[in-house]
Simulated scan of single mutants.
Amino acid sequence: MGQPPRLIATDLDGTLLRPDKSVSARTAAALERVSAQGVRVVLVTGRPVRWLDLVYQQLHAPVPAVCANGAVVYDPVTDEVLRADPLAPDLMAEVVRRLRAEVPGVVFAVEVQDGRLMRHGEDWPTHWNSDHPTARLVATPEELLSAPAVKLLARSTQDPEVFVKTVAGAIAGLAEATHSSYSGLVEISAAGVTKAAGLAWLCSRFGLTAADVIAFGDMPNDVPMLTWAGRAVAVANAHPTVREIADAVTASNSEDGVAAYLEELFALGSPDRT
């Protein structure tokens, strides 16, 4: 990347956010100061739209987001979904059929209404998300798959790395499979839907190309975006597959690695580190 980047694309969990899911004052300040120089900032995350409010509350200004691993492009200023690329119900039914044949005990949930609502069955593991107001229990598998979904979630007790390879093999050519955690959770999107595809679409609206973009990430679902961007930066805590393809490695998310890299790149100095 010979010229300074014109757009910063950053993953959230494990990358921009600290382990407690907070945005540090240092990170918020770095993004604000870069934006003041005319550089665009875009959040590129596996999170659905419904999980973004807590992040925006910690930033100085709302910025666009590519959500659900590229399936949704969101404008927080207008609360508008600019683009959505969901899985069709019949396609999801085929994905579920194949995975049930390959992985005994696999369970499913879906992100519907452009990621503003999650649906899950009684067999979905109970945790905070299942009790959230934007999560809804459904009575039957047919109801679960009755509407287009921007993400199909599959969970298993298998080894996470084995599980994601099994899923990817079973649905090859039908849909995209990736993961963004070290638990047995695989995130499934429509064919061709990746963080790179969603970000490329948004950059095109801005009149920008991959060469204008610097991207930060930590997990396998970030790899398409990182390989597409003009410069790819992994945080020190990144998955090995991310570190292998990155152009540079910055400090970990617990050490505000994104902010540290931006401070040096844009000669911002180091403000309050709290």
Rank of each mutant, 00 (worst) to 15 (best):
Thr126Glu: 13
Thr126Asn: 06
His127Val: 10
Trp128Ala: 15
Pro148Leu: 03
Val150Leu: 06
Pro133Ala: 05
Gly169Thr: 10
Glu143Ser: 12
Arg98Trp: 07
Val193Tyr: 03
Arg98Lys: 13
Gly115Leu: 10
Val167Pro: 12
Leu153Trp: 01
Cys203Met: 12
Val186Cys: 14
Gly192Ser: 04
Ala139His: 12
Pro133Leu: 02
Ala93Arg: 15
Ala175Tyr: 03
Arg119His: 14
Leu152Asn: 02
Ala149Pro: 08
Thr134Gly: 01
Arg98Met: 10
Ile171His: 08
Thr178Val: 13
Leu117Pro: 05
Val138Asn: 02
Leu144Gly: 11
Pro141Glu: 05
Arg97Ile: 08
Asp131Ala: 10
Lys165Arg: 14
Arg205His: 09
His127Cys: 12
Gly184Lys: 00
Asp114Trp: 08
Ser181His: 09
Leu145Pro: 08
Asn129Cys: 08
Pro133Trp: 01
Arg136Ile: 00
Val164Ser: 03
Val95Met: 02
Ala197Arg: 11
Leu137Lys: 10
Val110Pro: 07
Pro148Gly: 04
Ala177Lys: 03
Asp159Ile: 10
Gly184Tyr: 03
Leu91Arg: 13
Arg100Cys: 05
Leu99Val: 07
Met118Cys: 10
Pro141Arg: 00
Val138Gly: 05
Leu144Asp: 11
Leu174Arg: 02
Gly198Val: 06
Ser204Leu: 02
Gly184His: 03
Val162Asn: 09
Arg97Thr: 15
Glu143Gly: 06
Leu91Phe: 04
Pro104Tyr: 02
Ala88Ser: 15
Ser204Asn: 11
Thr126His: 07
Val162Ala: 15
Leu99Gly: 06
Leu91Ser: 13
Ser146Tyr: 06
Ala147Cys: 06
Gly184Thr: 04
Ser130Pro: 01
Leu185Val: 15
Arg98Phe: 07
Met118Val: 12
Ala191Phe: 00
Leu117Met: 15
Ala172Gln: 13
Gly115Thr: 12
Ser180Trp: 09
Thr166Arg: 08
Leu117Ser: 12
Ala175Gln: 04
Leu117Trp: 10
Ala154Pro: 04
Thr126Arg: 09
